[in-house]
Nucleic acid binder design. Structure first.
Lengths: 341, 341
DNA sequence: TTGAAAGCGATACCAG
DNA sequence: CTGGTATCGCTTTCAA
């Protein structure tokens, strides 16, 4: 461990305020505000502007967001809960796009770490920040929470999840559609004894449950059977599952996503199961790794709404909070047939 | 698109304040504050407490964080910039741990979306929120930025990156060590013409550059050569690279990480290059996929600091901002030798 | 063109 | 035990 000498001035001065800038520039606080905000309603002489800017720079003045939004009565903060588990490239990229798009509309996205808070506690915590809009993936939030947020000034609450919540705009992401697509595909390929790999890890049920249900729906009324296969994301777990594969007598399997599919495929191949002849495999999410596997992995490609679209929805909702609540189906699921099925 | 009827009350009432609660409960705002904050210095009668709590619940009162921290002169917000590119499971998990650990210490982590802001602009934007601490991955932040943040009240600035920044605590993550480990390993395995796969994608240079440099360092003064191999994360790019592999005449290659390694391995295998006989391959990050490849992928396992450690560092720094700045090397890199090298 | 002052919401001191 | 009130930093009328 290396020690770097501390800065020469250990004194903790309070942050400079607009009053300090005013004093240094020899003007009033009002003038400082006018100059720094480029208020067009008031004209300030050029020399004064320069003095103010110089003073601000010299002091390292930074406006106090809390004070500002307190005074203004609103902010342009869009709040999202920070995801509670490692999240794939799909979601990362979606959030990035969204941040960018909202940034262009002059909003600021804040991901709030609310680990260990349950639905209503979380809603309270978010409400304290008085965000202008709240984006909530999943269905942790109930009608109560939405109401709380709206009562504390949120002009839009948008949920991204399986079902709409009273009072909130909803981007419906029906993961059952993913399962239905996969199930229908396997059925069409002549498979009748279908396994569905479900992550053993907790937190993923929100996605895995509907995907499983979707498979069930897709074969309802046929002679096909669906078997749930819990699988932890570990080699040994996959090996154990593969070891009893012959006994299971499955001829097709839908894995939660391409990563679990890869895990399972490897274990099956090590076990001497022929893919896709003995067992057809299909994954989901259309990750790059699927294309690199041999046989190439069939998968369900998922189409998320673009960040731009969502940003525009948020903006519309914020500008006109009285408008009808939108509720749209946004998750597209399309089978990409490759060699594993 | 389905339309859900809007809620019956389209009136936008302002959020209830402590004054509203006081009015409804028939007490003063001071009393409300005492009750809701459980202030131990003052004793409030039980009936009054009840009335206040009831009023607060009825109105759906939520304290206004901005007003509170304005008054208090500080907050317990720890700010991190939101990552600008899809980030792997390693980092996701690290951030989660950190959030959890800081949460236990009663801090709140906020990931601030500062897309498109350069170092100093970003520092300004962060400073506006008056966070008590700022955690910055990468080296986007200069001494100036650190100074700005501290002047606006940040009691701790911690950088996670290649080099220390004046005035900030530093968790040094020397990615060159990853390259050195990989390079030394390949050299020890008798490889002398070493290629290094560098992502074609921008934004990753922060990591890829030092990893490449590390390889160079590890073979300095030997007869080994190092060839930089830019590679976009696409199948075709990999195929093109593989097509000229014989001409390149490389007998060992270090890929930026396991994902790029997998991409390259597949292309090389399709091209008929024998692994590891013709070319030894080693990746980095020790992802699950590496274990699933055949041959099993050798990799450089990366040890990040635990979220708990970092949380404690932040807490120490916040409690005693005058203390010596800590600067520690925290990135552990260890070769995991498997079958591809 | 500039300044004085009110007020956003919450808290903590000091009286009563 | 409870209430008035000053205060945090900033914006924005209203006057000068």
């Amino acid at each position: 461990m290396v020690q770097i000498p501390k800065t020469p001035a250990p004194v903790r001065r309070p942050a400079p305020t607009s009053a300090d800038v005013a004093r240094l520039a020899g003007v009033s606080r009002a003038t400082v505000s006018y100059v720094l905000n480029n208020t067009s309603a008031v004209r300030i002489s050029e020399p004064t502007r320069r003095r103010v800017h110089a003073a601000a720079k010299e002091l390292g003045y930074v406006p106090h967001a809390a004070a500002r939004s307190l005074r203004a009565g609103h902010s342009r903060m869009v709040l999202m809960p920070a995801p509670a588990f490692p999240v794939g490239p799909l979601y990362s990229q979606f959030v990035n796009e969204l941040q960018w798009a909202l940034g262009r509309l002059d909003y600021t996205v804040v991901q709030y770490g609310s680990l260990g808070l349950t639905g209503d506690e979380a809603a309270r915590a978010w409400a304290e920040l008085r965000p202008v809009a709240v984006l909530v993936p999943g269905s942790e939030l109930g009608a109560q929470g939405v109401d709380l947020l709206k009562r504390s000034g949120a002009r839009a609450v948008v949920t991204l999840g399986a079902e709409a919540v009273e009072g909130a705009h909803a981007l419906l992401m029906d993961h059952a559609a993913v399962g239905r697509a996969a199930g229908a595909h396997l059925y069409a390929r002549g498979r009748r004894r279908i396994g569905v790999v479900v992550p053993g890890e907790s937190g993923l049920e929100v996605f895995s449950r509907p995907r499983l249900d979707g498979v069930r729906q897709s074969v309802r009324g046929t002679d096909a059977t669906v078997t749930e296969l819990p699988l932890a994301y570990e080699e040994e777990a996959a090996a154990r599952l593969a070891a009893r594969w012959r006994d299971l007598g499955l001829d097709g399997v839908f894995a939660y996503n391409d990563e679990y599919a890869m895990l399972l495929m490897r274990a099956l191949q090590d076990e001497g199961v022929a893919l896709p002849d003995d067992t057809a495999v299909i994954g989901a999410d259309d990750l790059m790794i699927g294309r690199l596997l041999r046989p190439r992995l069939s998968t369900v490609h998922i189409e998320l709404p673009s960040g731009r679209d969502l940003a525009e929805l948020v903006d519309r909702a914020v500008r006109d909070p009285g408008a009808e609540l939108e509720s749209r189906e946004v998750l597209g699921a399309a089978v990409v047939h490759r060699d594993s099925s």
